[in-house]
């Protein structure tokens, strides 16, 4: 479980808060989506919760372990899929996996078994001996996903994991997310695609300008928008009407996107709903 209590971040070269008093609880056994427009503070939040960035204030607990007080123990319980897979082009794929395995203290048989399993699922077995620089962006993303699972973390954190993945790999990724939550583990991932969130998440949080503007399930989001709109002709009204008329999936997705945009717009104007 990941608990964020009032975390904030102001970068040294900025006077604006990138993340402002953000509180979230990401429970075990749930796939938790983290949505927001570009520059909303998703990556900053993820970097803070993984210990890559020091918050200006607030507390982070990973399975009850404080990231500030026991960073190494807290980090051992996280597997992170970074947003930039273009990091170590000069290393070979297995050298990168070995490095991560060594840092997490994964035994040889365990790491071999896990790499073998996930490399097969992501069709990457033939490229394990290749330099990372020779892999496509999608293959690098798959490699990052495998590396993040090499120590079988209790909390799996993914920053925009679908970017660059082919449909088969995206399907596998979603399947792995579900397998992990079934096993009682925590999955937290960021995206800016509402459709992905709708199909994958048990719960979601929407962030804009560093603040959480919604937290709950998709039905709850619809309900909240409906309450705010009070049966008017807003996006929620459109969504309801579409559903009632048995609209196509495309129309439903479209209305969901508009719902997201409406929410972000309203938070830009007069604060969270």
């Amino acid at each position: 479980m990941i608990e964020l209590s009032g975390i904030s971040k102001t970068y040294a070269k900025s006077d604006r808060k990138a993340v402002d008093s953000l509180s979230l609880t990401i429970p075990d056994g749930r796939i938790f989506g983290f949505l927001g427009p570009n520059g909303a503070g998703k990556t900053t939040t993820i970097r803070m919760l993984c210990g890559a960035l020091e918050p200006s204030g607030g507390a982070i607990l990973i399975d009850g372990i404080s990231m500030r007080e026991k960073p190494l123990a807290a980090k051992r319980r996280i597997g992170l899929v970074h947003d930039n897979p273009e990091l170590f082009n000069r290393l070979k794929a297995y050298e990168y996996l070995d490095f991560v395995g060594d840092v997490f203290g994964v035994s040889t048989p365990e790491r071999r078994a896990r790499v073998e399993e996930y490399a097969a699922r992501f069709s990457l077995s033939d490229s394990i001996g290749s330099p990372i620089g020779s892999l496509s962006r999608g293959m690098k993303q798959k490699l990052g996903i495998i590396a993040s699972l090499i120590h079988d973390p209790h909390n799996w954190v993914l920053d925009e994991p679908m970017v660059g993945l082919d449909p088969q790999a995206a399907f596998e990724l979603k399947a792995i997310m579900r397998e992990r939550t079934k096993a009682g583990k925590c999955v937290f991932f960021s995206t800016h695609v509402m459709e992905v969130a709708e199909k994958v998440c048990d719960e979601l949080a929407i962030i804009n300008k560093g603040r959480i503007i919604f937290e709950g399930t998709i039905p709850a989001l619809r309900g909240r928008m409906a309450a705010a709109d009070a049966g008017g002709a807003g996006p929620e009204g459109a969504a309801r009407e579409s559903a009632a008329a048995g609209a196509t999936a495309d129309t439903a997705n479209d209305s969901l996107e508009r719902l997201f945009l409406e929410l972000v717009d309203s938070s830009n104007g007069d604060g969270a709903l």
Binding site: D98, D102, V103, G105, T108, V115, I128
Partner: peptide, 16 residues
């Protein structure tokens, strides 16, 4: 195994 000799073998973190 798809892994060659010396691949995916545990080493001390500092060495790595």
């Amino acid at each position: 195994s798809v892994f060659g000799r010396g691949m995916l073998v545990r080493r001390p973190p500092l060495e790595s």
